[in-house]
Design a protein around this nucleic acid. Structure first.
Length: 256
DNA sequence: ATGGCTTAGTTCCTAAGA
């Protein structure tokens, strides 16, 4: 089965591209980020007509995550992370899909850093780590898929120098990501390609796509029980080059 | 040192993204 994470950067603007992707790739499970729509305006009817059932956690203007499945309805387990009741950002949605637990994650960007947005990012990563540990304790196949807004290593960016002061690759961001992995999660793309540049994002600005100036920030983290079933992983890079593309490309795994 | 693009809402500018 193919499980995809895709930051669509506005589901309304991206809907034709998304439906095209469904028709061509027929993914089984899809985690979306940056819906940028309210719960009321999520295009459920169009997605349903394409054969997908969805659970979504929207927010007007920005953020927003969803879990979609082909021919089966995801069952919601949690929306939002514990630990900060005043946090109203729609960034976490956890569902049951068949025998899998799947979470769609939109981790805060954290720029500019230092500052309150960066502090929020680090707190959010701590809260995610708490939830991730609980999930591991269930000892079942779990996939934490999303836009983590973390460049984990120097070979995950086209230019260390260009990104040196960015929140995405500060030592604190990387340390929090490493701590998460150290709980026992497998970074599926790194498992498939242990070294070298694999990008999932290319900036709209300064000809990022044309120059192949990208970085790897969309990740699928697998519990040991899911990693046992990992068959392949990759990026559907071609979709970044199409008309009206998102600045992220669909990033995927195949599980046996 | 800054902006470059793109999306969406407060819409003919601003905020946010990364």
């Amino acid at each position: 089965m193919k499980i995809v994470t895709y930051n669509v950067n506005g589901i309304k603007a991206r809907l034709p591209r998304l439906l095209e992707y469904f028709a061509e790739q027929q993914p089984d499970v899809v985690c979306l980020q940056e819906l940028k729509c309210s719960d009321e305006t999520f295009p459920a009817a169009e997605i349903d007509a394409a054969g997908y059932h969805a659970v979504w956690h929207g927010q007007k203007g920005f953020n927003g995550v969803a879990v979609l499945a082909r021919g089966v309805a995801p069952i919601e387990r949690a929306r939002g992370l514990a630990g900060e009741p005043e946090d109203e950002h729609s960034r976490y949605l956890e569902c049951e899909v068949g025998d899998l637990v799947v979470a769609s994650i939109y981790l805060p960007n954290g720029n500019p850093q230092p500052g309150p947005k960066f502090d929020y990012k680090l707190r959010w990563m701590e809260r995610l780590a708490v939830r991730a540990r609980e999930l591991l304790a269930e000892e079942r196949p779990v996939v934490l898929a999303g836009d983590y807004n973390v460049i984990p290593r120097d070979d995950d960016t086209f230019s260390v120098r260009a990104m040196a002061n960015d929140a995405l690759m500060q030592p604190e961001s990387r340390r929090a990501y490493r701590r998460l992995l150290a709980q026992g999660w497998t970074d599926a793309l790194r498992w498939r390609a242990p070294t070298g540049g694999v990008w999932t994002f290319w900036d709209y600005q300064a000809g990022g796509w044309q120059r192949d100036a990208g970085f790897r920030i969309d990740h699928l983290l697998l519990s040991p029980q899911a990693a046992d079933r990992l068959a392949d992983a990759g990026v559907d890079k071609e979709y970044r080059g199409r008309e009206k593309a998102s600045d992220h490309a669909p990033t995927w795994i195949r599980l046996r």
